[in-house]
Write a protein that binds this DNA or RNA. Structure first.
Length: 301
DNA sequence: AGCCAGGATAGAC
DNA sequence: GTCTATCATGGC
């Protein structure tokens, strides 16, 4: 039997979630760890402000303000209401994903420390660009570059007096040109992003979203600067592919040194499915964050 | 100064 | 198909 103290889930957490789901603008703190979810390296478009968190999703300025035991969602009025429940993956049964893994020492340790990291469902174009930029880079600098891209090439939006900038469209990036991208700090990734933007000008994103995993993986790798890892990030964070298993340097270390698994992308992914289930990507995000925060320091060389 | 960061690429074999 | 040097940039 899977009990709440096994993984240190706070008593009553699920209840609070259910009670507040009736309020369409309220994100209960007990349902999702916004701090960890926004800053664990899956999105680079959020920042902390006095009242809470400020971001821009799908061309819409968003402010998450602290209120009671959670946050209120405030948007600008530029379009239809923002589907934050989908963005924050509120309807997934996270306990159901982790419960079958109660015999996995490392998953349990990670889940005990970070049991409310949700995998965000982000706009695919922004995710593709962000993770092209992420190659051989660190989260702080990726964030700076993405922010510079938005500030220089995006459009201004505002909510509650806060100004943000939208993520630039493929047209915006092509018009800016490769040299401009270089000056924004992209380094050798500048031509990758530029060529990707050109290819994206007339691209059928709906077809990508409708594809199965293998098909979508091959398709994404046709973009310049996209290999297995970046493609898996896009698949997991934007394409509803819960089995995608991004292997960066941290996850590589975890798989090698904690689970004794080595090999190429294909083998690593099948082993991840065997160890963590068909939604291995959801588990991966918590493992990644735990490893990066030093939780496995004692096990890693 | 050298190593690391949510890796990918072209080239060699 | 697998293995490798190389690629900007900044922080430590």
């Amino acid at each position: 039997m899977f009990t709440s103290n096994m993984l240190s889930l706070k008593p009553g957490a699920i209840r609070v979630y259910d009670i507040h789901m009736s309020n369409s603008n309220f994100i209960p703190a007990a349902a999702v760890d916004l701090e960890a979810s926004l800053f664990c390296g899956q999105s680079f478009s959020w920042q902390k402000v006095e009242e809470g968190y400020l971001g821009c999703v799908d061309g819409r300025a968003i402010l998450l303000t602290r209120a009671g035991e959670g946050h209120l969602v405030l948007c600008d009025n530029s379009g239809p209401e923002w589907g934050w429940q989908e963005y924050f993956d509120m309807h997934r049964d996270y306990l159901g994903v982790f419960a079958p893994l109660q015999n996995d020492k490392y998953v349990c340790e990670a889940y005990a420390a970070y049991n409310k990291i949700h995998v965000l469902k982000q706009p695919v174009w922004e995710t593709l660009c962000s993770f092209i930029i992420s190659a051989n880079n660190n989260i702080a600098r990726i964030t700076r570059i993405v922010r510079a891209l938005c500030f220089e090439l995006g459009e201004e939006r505002s909510v509650e007096g806060h100004v943000v900038h939208t993520f630039p469209s493929p047209e915006n990036i092509v018009e800016a040109g490769e040299a401009r991208l270089l000056s924004l700090g992209l380094g050798y990734r500048a031509p990758y992003l530029y060529e990707t933007a050109q290819r994206a000008l007339n691209y059928d994103w709906d077809a990508l979203l409708a594809s199965d995993y293998d098909q979508a993986l091959d398709e994404l790798k046709n973009f310049k600067g996209v290999g297995d890892k970046v493609a898996d990030c896009v698949l997991l964070f934007s394409c509803n592919q819960d089995s995608a298993f991004p292997v960066d340097t941290w996850v590589q270390r975890v798989m090698n040194e904690l689970y004794g698994i080595k090999g190429g992308h294909r083998h690593m992914r099948s082993e991840a499915a065997r160890l963590f289930g068909e939604k291995a990507g959801i588990v991966q995000q918590t493992l990644f964050h735990a490893a990066r925060m030093g939780l496995f320091k004692q096990y890693l060389t």
